[in-house]
C-alpha cells in the first residue's frame, strides 16, 4: 500500500545538497588530478602511491579522500538546513562536466600544450 502524500515527512534539502555538490567535486578532482599528474613530473611522482598502478593510484585515492572529506564537511554545515539547491545543482553539473572533459586525453593534451 502506498503512503498518502500528506503523510510523507518533508525533510530539509541540506544533506542531499551536500552529497550532490561533493559528488561534483569528487568527479572534478579525478580530472584535475589526472591533468596535474600528467603535466607535472613532481606531481606525477607524488601521486604514485602504489608502484604497479602508478600515478593512477594517487589520482583515485586522493579523489576519493577529497570527495568524502568535502561530503563530510558540507554535510555537517548543511545538516537540517535548506539551501539553494538550484545553484548547488548548477555547480555540481559544471564540476561533473569538468570531470569528463579533463579526463579526455585530447583535451588534457590541449591544456598541457602538446
Amino acid at each position: 500500500m502506498s503512503v498518502p502524500e500528506e503523510e510523507v515527512e518533508v525533510m530539509s534539502n541540506g544533506p542531499g545538497a551536500a552529497a550532490i555538490l561533493a559528488a561534483g567535486i569528487g568527479c572534478a578532482s579525478v580530472g584535475i588530478l589526472a591533468v596535474a599528474g600528467d603535466a607535472s613530473k613532481p606531481i606525477g611522482k607524488f601521486l604514485n602511491f602504489y608502484d604497479p598502478t602508478g600515478t593512477l593510484s594517487g589520482v583515485t585515492i586522493m579523489s576519493i579522500v577529497i570527495w568524502l572529506a568535502v561530503w563530510f564537511v558540507l554535510g555537517s554545515f548543511w545538516a537540517g538546513k535548506t539551501v539553494a539547491l538550484g545553484r548547488v545543482n548548477l555547480a555540481a553539473f559544471v564540476l561533473l562536466f569538468a570531470g569528463f572533459l579533463l579526463t579526455f586525453p585530447p583535451f588534457m593534451d590541449l591544456l598541457e600544450g602538446q
Binding site: V8, V10, M11, G16, A19, V30, W67
Partner: peptide, 28 residues
C-alpha cells in the same frame, strides 16, 4: 582509466540521496 571513476562516485550519491529521502524526494 580515469573516466571510469566518475561512475562509482556518481552512483554512490544517487543511492545515498534516494535512500536518505525515500518518498520525501517528491518535495525536492
Amino acid at each position: 582509466e580515469h573516466v571510469s571513476w566518475l561512475a562509482p562516485i556518481a552512483i554512490t550519491m544517487v543511492a545515498y540521496v534516494t535512500m536518505k529521502y525515500g518518498q520525501a524526494i517528491i518535495y525536492h
